[in-house]
């Protein structure tokens, strides 16, 4: 029971990170129907940008830990949004309307490019970060086993809930969100109503990238190490989360992220840590075979 509770806490924390990244996959798919395989690397860029801000400002002796983190998150979101914007402009827009595989190949190419660029610029070794937020609550104790809920976990889950709520409201209630949904449902009609479709697509990439950057910061502080390759595995798991929830669906991405985080954590907790990545990929395969529309996705029938 204690062990279960601890895994649950860890799983929800990890699921928050996956969920935030999954939103970017699902939004881009919703609007232009492509899988942005470089999205995981935008997450990685976000983590690196945050680390650079923290190390840089920390070296100057500026700011408290809390202040540093807030500045780093904002910096990481801006940098990642700029990369997201550039990615779409350079690698995807010229191929829009071309055959589907072209954009996919371009995305994989951009993913490799970003990884290699960061490897060259920052080196291949892992980058450590001193723990910045320590301590927490002991929820339960039985023998030597304690159930811990760290402050950091509370912050990660709390931030995720706040961001997801805010983002859902943005999509459902604001004119920006309405424009994005209009483009998703009928891009040609959206243009006939005066909408600058290219701008809306750019904005979608930037929003997804900014959320991935927040996830990157969480990953950095939670695990304390990053390298140029983190975007690959985390990216594929977040993609799996988006597919599990139903690609194109915003609540689906959030639910899928949570589920993948829980599944991975419980799998490592109860079976074997070595094969923890297999769990996520097995789910990807099973969903694609038995329920390609995912849990909350809608069938692709009403396209006119």
């Amino acid at each position: 029971m204690e062990y279960f509770l601890q895994q649950l806490i860890n799983g929800v924390t990890l699921g928050s990170i996956y969920g935030l990244i999954a939103i970017g996959y699902t939004m881009v798919y919703g609007i232009i129907g492509m899988i942005n395989f470089a999205h995981g690397d935008i997450f990685m860029i976000g983590a690196f940008s945050g680390l650079i801000v923290i190390v840089g400002l920390g070296a100057l002796g500026l700011g408290s830990a809390g202040g540093l983190i807030v500045v780093a998150i904002i910096g990481a979101m801006i940098v990642a949004a700029a990369y997201g914007w550039a990615l779409e402009r350079i690698a995807y827009r010229p191929l829009r309307g071309s055959f589907r595989l072209a954009a996919l190949i371009s995305a994989i190419g951009m993913s490799i490019l970003l990884q290699n660029y960061v490897q060259l610029a920052q080196g291949a070794r892992v980058k450590p970060l001193q723990p910045m937020i320590e301590g927490g609550f002991v929820l339960m104790q039985k023998g030597d086993f304690t159930v811990n809920l760290s402050y950091l976990q509370i912050i990660i889950v709390g931030t995720t809930i706040a961001l997801m709520t805010g983002f859902s409201l943005l999509i459902a209630k604001t004119s920006i969100g309405r424009s994005q949904r209009a483009c998703e449902q009928d891009m040609k009609m959206a243009a006939l109503l005066g909408l600058d479709v290219n701008r809306t697509i750019s904005l979608t990439f930037m929003m997804g990238a900014a959320l991935a950057a927040v996830a990157g910061m969480m990953f950095l502080i939670y695990y304390g190490v990053i390298d140029f390759f983190i975007g690959f595995l985390v990216g594929i798991k977040a993609f799996t989360a988006a597919v599990l929830g139903g690609i194109g669906s915003l609540p689906g991405a959030m639910l899928g992220g949570l589920l993948i985080g829980l599944i991975e954590t419980f799998w490592s907790g109860y079976f074997t840590v070595e094969y923890k990545d297999v769990a996520a990929f097995a789910i990807l395969v099973l969903v694609l075979i038995f329920r390609p529309t995912g849990l909350l996705g809608r069938p692709e029938v009403e396209k006119v």
Binding site: R178, A182, Q185, D186, A190, L193, G194, E302, V304
Partner: peptide, 20 residues
């Protein structure tokens, strides 16, 4: 073909018309 946004309400469709 009318091209109504199928997953938006009547009000939202009209709001899209007034977007600018």
């Amino acid at each position: 073909g009318r091209r109504i946004f199928p997953r938006m309400t009547v009000l939202e469709n009209l709001q899209m018309g007034a977007a600018f």
